[in-house]
Write a protein that binds this DNA or RNA. Structure first.
Length: 631
DNA sequence: TTAGGGTTAG
């Protein structure tokens, strides 16, 4: 009954809470007293009430103007040195100017008194916490800590979790080590909360993961939070096998994960594209009764969509009671990745009908859906609706989607004009998007020009050289291609090796091109030969222009035949029952030849083959692909 | 007053 939708003065609402008044009539009677005059008189007559009121007012403070007003009340009622009020003052808002103002007021009393108050550490903790939670002023948390030490105020065990959180956000390993030293100096390095935050801090800092692991391994006692922090650290770094491995160890150690742990584990699972593991994780969540928060359900949606089963993602979504924009967006992005653009658009419309306003991320999903499905006009209409209907200023990512949308549809010139007219400077991603469109649609001259410029802009970016080298291969300009290779060697740049992963009986197998490390490699290569014969008989012609090396046609075919994706398929055909779908996860984009060969394999061997490449999914079935050869 | 987590173009 005290919901703020009544639009009453929050001071009174807080008073009501304190007086435990429950009748609406009484509330209404009290609310008539609402006026600044009444509040002021309260301050003047009773300092205790004034303190309570001040605290209540601060509770709802969200602007500098309001804070200044409260400050006036504070001075009027002689509360400028009240520790409770000052502390509250310092933690009123997430707005930086308010925190700065509050901190300056809070700290100003330190100079005016000779002895420290019991709550001074409390006060600093609050300021440190407020800064640690900001997005751009985390370093102020560190300065406040220095100030604290400068005033000879000893930190307490609550100080460090806040401080370490700020370090985690600053990603600075050296700073983290310094704070670690300080933690030890004050003897709080044995506190579980502090240790957990320490693990998190190191795991967030650049190059700090091994330090995190050291702290974690040396902890005499851990909680599920310690494990979560460590697993989350691995997951964020893409060290997914470490994350999953540690999760298994956690179970062996008998520590029960909670919903936060499971979100990190699911994100590692997404990275591996391990659908079977993901399904088991959902089963585990149900079996162990892990609280299915909105965040956890969102992670499940994301997992199913990115591990290749967007229908399962939809099932999780439909069962959710409370959905957020993230839930909707995860489904939209998922549908887009699977080339189900029309459904993604319909889903976006359903979201709007449900009264959920799209945000910038939802638009990225929607526009990429339009792009992957070739819905040019719809995409253009939605793009202009961003500003006109939703007052969302398009970001570089949205422009990127539009370049892709036009480029994929073959409107390369329009895409170029679009880039030239963009109100923000194009980034290398935009140019690479255009180059890809040029390659697909045979605009080789243009792609060469842009590609050369890109190398000038980003000389240390290996993929730019590979791009140009591929363009020269398509143009049959072998000399230029060789030169590019030489430049790469000279500059010590390397092509990222293609890698394909496949999950089989709870194991994940990785293949790189020409891989002979697998124990079954002889059978795999025999299978490859057989596959080659079968698909050729069905009409497959190798796409040798995708081969980077300047070698004769027969060798080129051989090189193509050893691509990681084909090795993984051969391995799957050998080790799974006929008719079982094959799921492969690649680190790069599918090459033209593998794409063509996989279509034939799906038909010849009567297998559904689902390939997740760097950007999207390809569902191969009966000799065709869900991307309609448009990727 | 203290710790760990979710959607983002190519």
């Amino acid at each position: 009954m005290l919901s703020c939708s009544l639009n009453e003065d929050l001071t009174l609402v807080c008073c009501l809470f304190r007086l435990k008044l429950s009748s609406l009539a009484q509330f209404k009677k009290l609310s008539t007293l609402r006026s600044s005059a009444a509040t002021t008189s309260l301050y003047n007559n009773n300092s205790r009430v004034a303190e309570q009121n001040c605290l209540a007012l601060l509770e709802s403070c969200n602007s500098l103007a309001k804070l200044t007003q409260i400050h006036a009340h504070l001075l009027k009622s002689g509360l400028q040195n009240n520790a409770f009020v000052l502390t509250k003052f310092a933690s009123t808002s997430s707005h930086l100017n308010v925190i700065d103002y509050a901190a300056s007021i809070a700290f100003s009393h330190l100079d005016s008194i000779s002895t420290h108050h019991l709550y001074d550490a409390f006060l600093f903790n609050t300021v440190i916490r407020a800064y640690a939670q900001t997005s751009h002023a985390k370093h102020n948390a560190i300065s406040s800590y220095s100030l604290m030490l400068h005033h000879a105020i000893p930190p307490n065990k609550f100080t460090f979790p806040f401080l370490l959180k700020a370090c985690a956000g600053l990603l600075d390993l050296n700073l983290g080590k310094q704070v670690h030293g300080s933690v030890a100096k004050f003897g709080f390095d044995t506190d579980l909360y502090v240790q957990n935050t320490m693990v998190h801090m190191y795991a967030c800092c650049v190059g700090g993961i091994e330090f995190a692991r050291k702290v974690f391994d040396e902890m005499p006692k851990t909680s599920h939070v310690s494990w979560s922090a460590m697993i989350g650290g691995y997951a964020r770094l893409g060290r997914s096998n470490n994350a999953i491995g540690l999760f298994r160890k956690m179970q062996i150690a008998g520590v029960k994960p909670d919903e936060v742990t499971m979100v990190s584990v699911l994100s590692a699972c997404v990275d591996l594209g391990a659908l079977e593991l993901g399904k088991w994780l959902e089963f585990y969540i149900e079996r162990e009764g892990v609280l299915k928060t909105v965040e956890l359900c969102n992670a499940l949606i994301d997992m199913f969509a990115k591990c290749g089963d967007v229908d399962e993602a939809m099932r999780v979504f439909r069962k959710m009671n409370d959905k957020t924009i993230v839930s909707w967006t995860s489904v939209i992005v998922g549908l887009a990745m699977h080339g189900r653009g029309v459904e993604a658009v319909a889903f976006f419309e359903e979201m709007k009908r449900a009264g959920v306003a799209p945000d910038d991320v939802a638009f990225i999903g929607l526009l990429s859906a339009c792009s992957h499905a070739g819905l040019v006009e719809e995409g253009q209409r939605y793009f202009s609706s961003m500003a006109s209907e939703y007052a969302i200023v398009p970001k570089i990512e949205h422009y990127g989607c539009m370049v892709d949308l036009l480029g994929r549809a073959g409107l390369v010139k329009q895409a170029l004009e679009f880039i030239q007219e963009m109100p923000i400077a194009p980034n290398p991603v935009i140019w690479r998007t255009l180059i890809h469109a040029c390659r697909v649609h045979g605009e080789l001259e243009l792609s060469e020009t842009i590609s050369r410029r890109l190398i000038g802009d980003e000389p240390t970016h290996g993929s730019n050289y590979v791009l140009l080298s591929n363009i020269y291969a398509k143009m049959f300009r072998w000399e230029n291609k060789t030169k590019i290779r030489e430049v790469m060697d000279k500059r010590g740049l390397r092509k990222v090796p293609g890698c394909s992963m496949i999950e089989l009986n709870s194991e994940i197998y990785e293949f790189v091109a020409g891989d002979k490390t697998h124990s079954q490699y002889k059978e795999i290569y025999e299978m490859l030969d057989e596959m080659g014969r079968m698909v050729k008989r069905a009409g497959y012609i190798p796409v040798t222009s995708d081969v980077l090396l300047d070698i004769d046609e027969e060798d080129k075919e051989d090189a193509l035949n050893r691509h990681s994706e084909k090795l993984a398929i051969a391995f799957a055909l050998l080790n799974t029952l006929p008719g079982t779908p094959i799921r492969i996860v690649k680190n790069l984009r599918v090459c033209g030849d593998c794409h063509s060969a996989t279509k034939f394999i799906s038909k010849v061997y009567n297998r559904e083959i689902v390939v997740r490449d760097r950007n999207r999914f390809h569902h191969f079935k009966d000799g065709s692909c869900s991307c309609k050869d448009f990727w």
